[in-house]
Design a protein around this nucleic acid. Structure first.
Lengths: 187, 187
DNA sequence: TCCGGTGATGTCACGTGATGACATCACCAC
DNA sequence: GTGGTGATGTCATCACGTGACATCACCGGA
């Protein structure tokens, strides 16, 4: 068997992706994922908190990068400008593998439970960015508004990037969406 | 017992609220909720899809009202102006009972699973509003950006209303938050 | 060379959430 | 009163998730 062959978490991740894609999230049991990875269900839950989390590993890295970008933004930058820089940074995480992103997003969009998990990850990201803005001296409610508005831009831009038939530039989508949001407020 | 005494869903809702508040969401079993309401666990699941949903009944009414407000908004109103009108309407649903809203939100905020459910309800609300804006002729990505930005405003304003020590006016919080968001974009 | 520690994995038992199938009860129209 | 209808109860079952304990591979030191 595959026991002791290393990278158990990685094997579980790809086994889960394959099975979720093949037969759907709900129709896949944790035991089946583990079996395909040469492990047991109990071990699955040692690597991932629950059946959904296997699709969301590494999301805290993204949060750290975004908060770091806010900290590194030039002092005089406005809140939304700082958020724009953070969104720029996010594209280096999210825009890496279009094929993989497409597959993963199709799985998530097809299931409400997975959507819930995605949304709480995004909301957490927004809260972290709001904290980063407060660190920069931005008061509430401005910090939360700017941060969560930034998350909206990120999600809309990412969605368009995913759905685009030709492979576009994610950073360009981000800038475009942010511009549109700003344009919507001017009257 | 309380079988056949009418308003089973209502009894289950208040039993759940009480128990969730007393001992926490996770420490409460569905059987306990049903027992307090004089019913069985099986009946609980006939009225509510799952253990979380008992806290979120009636959220589709809110969605209908918001979409209706978008439809009734004056033709020349800009997307964000229409969203502002919809937010105004939302306060008649959300700002009804400050005491109850506080209790409910405390329960939800204390538990990630409940937060997930709240977030997907809000996201669904945003999607419905985006569809309403498209109905008004607003193209994508503007429709989604304006709608989801409106949801951000709603959430921030509602949070401030909930946390305010003195009872403020929810509609005023909404207008204030929307103004702040607009101000953040102007440079 | 072996011995013991350490971390990852397996095995077992269990409570809970959630659902299908079927029985039972209250109520209402005729 | 009879039969239909909707709400509820009972029973069986499966999957998720977790605690407790056993087992395995590997590595460093005597």
């Amino acid at each position: 068997m595959a026991r002791w062959e290393g990278d158990a978490a990685g094997r579980l991740r790809s086994a889960a992706m394959d099975l979720y894609a093949e037969r759907g999230y709900e129709q896949t049991t944790v035991a089946e994922i583990a079996e395909r990875a040469g492990l047991t269900a109990r071990t699955f839950f040692r690597h991932f908190a629950d059946k959904r989390e296997v699709l969301f590993a590494g999301s805290s890295d993204l949060a750290d990068a975004l908060v770091g970008a806010l900290k590194d933004a030039p002092g005089p930058a406005s809140p939304m400008a700082a958020v724009g820089l953070a969104l720029e940074v996010s594209t280096t995480f999210l825009g890496r593998d279009h094929q993989h992103s497409r597959r993963r997003q199709a799985i998530i969009s097809a299931n409400p439970e997975l959507m819930e998990r995605e949304l709480i990850k995004m909301a957490t990201l927004g809260s972290a960015m709001a904290a980063g803005l407060r660190e920069r001296g931005v008061p509430e409610p401005d910090a939360s508004l700017a941060a969560q508005a930034g998350i909206v831009v990120l999600q809309v831009a990412f969605g368009r990037w995913i759905e685009s038939p030709v492979e576009t530039d994610l950073a360009a989508e981000m800038r475009s969406a942010l511009d549109r949001l700003i344009a919507l407020q001017s009257h």
